[in-house]
Design a protein around this nucleic acid. Structure first.
Lengths: 234, 234
DNA sequence: CATCTGAGTGAACGGTGTTCAGCGAAAGTG
DNA sequence: CACTTTCGCTGAACACCGTTCACTCAGATG
């Protein structure tokens, strides 16, 4: 039963007035949702507010998105390209220790620039683990890709003997790298506005955490490498 | 206007039937709220569910707690006391570097032994809590406030020149210590059961993260200190 | 005993995410 | 062109949510 939008032969159909309108609506809704989510957070932003900002009724949102969470996920998919871009930019760095450090920096920059997105990805309780719907079908789980990228870099560091001898457990070291990036930014996202803790410039704090961790892993070689790089290439 | 509960002279009144009932109700409500918050999270747990679990009506909750947020705060106060007890138990350790390390270890043990408590305390998005609503007494007092205790220890480390020269910012270093403990345990609590990250023994991983961080801060002096301690006192 | 007090009730208010019969204009078909 | 089908969208609901409030009535007070 071919439709105008998706013919049976799979060839792209000529965009009709209706399909163009629908795409436009979707874009408008997504933009409105981004504004609301970033301004008020996921819970506080309501579908009615988003609908009003997108100049439609709440029900219309459900034509394009199954539920509120999918609206957020669709929104995050767009911005996730930034994290992927940052990480793939690090892939060109030859030295695995420096590459690992830069990967962490790209990671924390993403977290601090998109705190609400980061919260949804890495700080919320996953309701249920659905292996089919989440992990594989979703054009490759970006979390797993990032993790795998980091693990591969860690593997090279270990193979080249760049880490202290006691840090040989690939999974554990990879997780410690992830944790060194996640720890500070997740605390900042939760308590950055809290008067209870006086946070300074978050990026500086996050970078410092990464550096301390890298020095702990390498026995201080990381800092010496960085300063020699800086001294050698002024 | 003295009441049976709080006479004007400040002397404790004899507990009447009513005051005992009220305290009992409060305790029952708090226990029900803890169950619900830990099971479903702050947002998903509803006042109606809590009321049903506490065998009362939703309105009765508002006799004891101003709103949902205050119910959470009352619950967190109890859990914080448990955590603070574990942290301040390290106060007897003379060496501030070792004391800081042991503080971190106590922190991650609490997190891994009470993952639901920890999630509620440090991993959920909380409504902003004004300082005046919070226990002012605890805030800033190293005996009661774990963060203040850690900061005081960090201050001693800095004053004794135990950290590398570039780590002189008291707040930032304290936050990095917190982050080094929080990072791994929060990831483990979220992804420990997830099939796409293979976690090993969580306590070992968390301790390793702490050690790397301490070595990064001290330029490796921490590990040398620990091994000399171990060698000196076998 | 009469009086007062206050913990608890139950219904309501305005919000929330989500669903769905039906509308009407665009698209497809003869 | 006229007829039928398609489908994005509306508006009204549904079942919840946190919170309020007039009211009740057992226990404390005098």
């Amino acid at each position: 039963m071919p439709t105008a939008n998706q013919p049976a032969d799979g060839k792209p159909a000529a965009p009709t007035q209706r399909t163009r309108d629908k795409a436009q609506s979707r874009t408008r809704m997504l933009a409105a949702a981004r504004r609301m989510f970033q301004r008020h957070g996921f819970e506080a932003a309501s579908m009615r507010q988003i609908a009003k900002a997108a100049k439609c009724t709440p029900g219309a949102l459900y034509v394009h998105f199954a539920d509120k969470r999918e609206l957020l996920v669709a929104m995050m998919d767009e911005d996730f390209a930034l994290l992927s871009a940052g990480i793939t930019a690090c892939a060109s760095i030859a030295d695995p220790v420096l590459r690992l450090s830069e990967t962490g920096r790209a990671y924390v920059r993403f977290a601090l620039e998109h705190p609400q997105h980061y919260r949804m990805l890495f700080m919320t309780q996953k309701p249920t683990i659905e292996p089919e719907s989440y992990c594989e079908i979703k054009h490759g789980n970006p979390d797993k890709d990032g993790y795998a990228f980091m693990r591969e870099t860690v593997r090279q560091c270990i193979e080249q003997g760049r880490f202290l001898a006691r840090y040989r457990d690939l999974e554990m070291v990879t997780q410690s790298c992830w944790a060194s990036a996640h720890g500070f930014v997740s605390l900042y996202i939760n308590y950055g506005e809290d008067p209870w803790v006086e946070f300074g410039e978050p990026l500086a704090g996050a970078y410092a955490c990464l550096d301390m961790h890298m020095d702990g892993l390498t026995g201080g070689e990381f800092s010496r490498l960085v300063s020699s790089q800086r001294g050698g290439n002024p």
